[in-house]
Design a protein around this nucleic acid. Structure first.
Lengths: 337, 337
DNA sequence: ATGAAAGCGCTAACAG
DNA sequence: CTGTTAGCGCTTTCAT
């Protein structure tokens, strides 16, 4: 069962009594052609709704106008707003620039579907939806000399290896947000985070640290607990900190923040009365939480678009920005001010 | 910037001193070939890690081994577990069967990216992630004679138009679930739902109706409120029903259910003490709600896999099931028994 | 069992 | 400015 073939460039050439080359030129705009014939060809194309066959174009040009977007497998189990939003934005932006995007779901240890997609040369490049301290996929891409772009900054050891590394100003945002939320406060504050294997968490940590150094509370009175990846881990950390008298918690992402609030409530503490929380990541969840959580907002869709746009510019040998850096917004709500 | 070309079938033929035809046959297995030469070719391929160029194959065979998956644009704004799970399953299953999937985000009125993807013949068929009473996309697909499959049943007017219509037994499941939850109860129950433009809601409604007919409470004492698509609409409906003395609510999907619980709590009612709720759709949200909600479970991933598998079988001219019908599970929890 | 040759639909030198 | 020609890498008759 196959889709029926449609009109080709040869048909047009024959009908119009010109050569295929002329038709090809009229379409692409490359090479000299008289305005008269160009218009004649374009009119015919318009009328007969001709569209060039992508496979033929791919074969002749040795490029597919397809991109692979690598999504973490965990996305299946649990919604990650960042992934969902950047995915949509990338798909949209790619479309606007004449590209399609193929989804590859990969685990860190099994990225076979990406490999096969590359083996068969179905794409011109790949976009990684997050960056890790150690990533076999990145190694593979570098070794095979495949053009790739990343959402988020790569670890320094891979510096310059990606065509495009798009990121929000995480250190700057977290620095400013931390200051806004901690300034003129004398109560100690804790930072709660998950895996430092994610580069984004390293960046956020550095912003937080920098802010601490400029505040009245010394860094050694600022507990930092990482590796909080489930409710139990969070409970353990938070209750321990509670016992130490800590009542203010800055969370590195929305998941940690939700867990933290759960634990605080389980301990009979009200927010922001008894304890305060804030988040380095703003999502709908943070906005609709009770109470709404002060958070740092990064526009994921904008990041996706910028990354995709610059990457395609690069693939098209046009000038591009290899390191688009986007801003942030501080959203103070009721959970911590 | 393009990926460098790799070894081709010609290279192999030359190296091995055979014709390209022979190599092609050794790879595809079509046509007669001696076991000896086949193995020789395969060994060479293995050793030199040869992979056929997809564009060339596409051009020669007039098929791409790509599928378009149409996702509703709303998915950007809000997570829809069904979409996320079926998407992942489809991408995975397609990969197992040698296909890639391209994402097309479409609104009901603007499906231009799908159109262009089809115009350029970048895919062999399309999968629709939900079915509507009136869908211009379906009309277009039929008119253009494009093979397509759907997650969910098509409205009767399009019966038989899709190659594959995969669905859960929605009427059967809702019937059984409604009986389980309403049987031997004499208090009146209401049904709360959203848009009947979604076929799935029509199916669920029919199952619910059938159950009512077999129960002690007559159908006319069973209020049915549709069109609940935001919290305010829900509040209006629920408070009106509350005023009529209704305390039991069956919700057609998880969103309506969440809203209903919010309204009930806002009215000072406890669940399941003062009022009871149940949902025709089970998601993590239903499981982790307070209290956990009795719900009807459908395995979205399984549906995605079945749909994709049968569709690809059809595209490959193999035997297939045009209407895979999957089961359900009744999960009674605390919100209504 | 194997090979020669044509062709899929398009692009891109190179001539003219 | 336009046409001729030769590919791109693979499949597929049709011979042998």
């Amino acid at each position: 069962m196959t889709i029926k073939p449609s009109i080709t460039i040869d048909d047009i050439a024959r009908e119009l009594g010109v050569s295929k080359t002329t038709v090809s030129r009229a379409i692409s705009g490359k090479g000299r052609i008289s305005a008269a014939t160009r218009e004649r060809v374009q009119a015919y194309i318009e009328e007969h709704n001709y569209k060039p066959n992508a496979s033929a174009k791919s074969l002749a040009e040795n490029r597919t106008y397809n991109l692979a977007l690598v999504l973490p497998r965990d996305f299946i189990k649990l919604d990650v707003p960042f992934i969902r939003q950047t995915m949509s934005a990338i798909v949209d932006e790619a479309f606007l620039m004449g590209y399609n995007v193929m989804i590859c779901l990969e685990a860190i240890t099994d990225y076979s579907s990406l490999v096969r997609t590359l083996d068969y040369r179905k794409v011109d490049g790949v976009i990684l939806s997050r960056t890790l301290e150690d990533d076999p996929v990145v190694e593979m891409l570098i070794k095979r000399d495949i053009p790739f772009a990343t959402l988020g900054t790569l670890p320094v050891k891979y510096a310059g290896k990606a065509i495009v590394e798009a990121d929000h100003d995480q250190p700057g945002g977290c620095y400013a947000f931390s200051k806004a939320v901690m300034a003129s406060r004398t109560q100690p504050t804790a930072l709660l985070g998950n895996d430092l294997g994610y580069i984004v968490n390293q960046s956020r940590l550095s912003g937080f640290r920098k802010a601490c150094q400029e505040l009245v509370i010394p860094l050694d009175q600022t507990p930092i607990r990482m590796g909080i990846n489930d409710l139990e881990g969070c409970r353990e950390a938070v209750e321990d900190l509670l016992a130490q008298g800590i009542r203010r918690f800055v969370c590195m992402d929305e998941d940690v923040c939700v867990r933290t609030m759960t634990v605080l409530k389980d301990n009979g503490l009200t927010i922001p009365g008894d304890a305060q929380v804030a988040s380095f990541s703003d999502t709908d969840q943070m906005k609709t939480a009770v109470p709404p959580v002060s958070a740092l907002y990064f526009d994921a869709a904008e990041l996706g678009r910028a990354c995709c746009r610059e990457f395609i510019h690069a693939l098209n040998d046009e000038s591009y920005d290899p390191k688009p850096l986007l801003g942030y917004k501080i959203r103070l709500r009721h959970s911590m001010i």
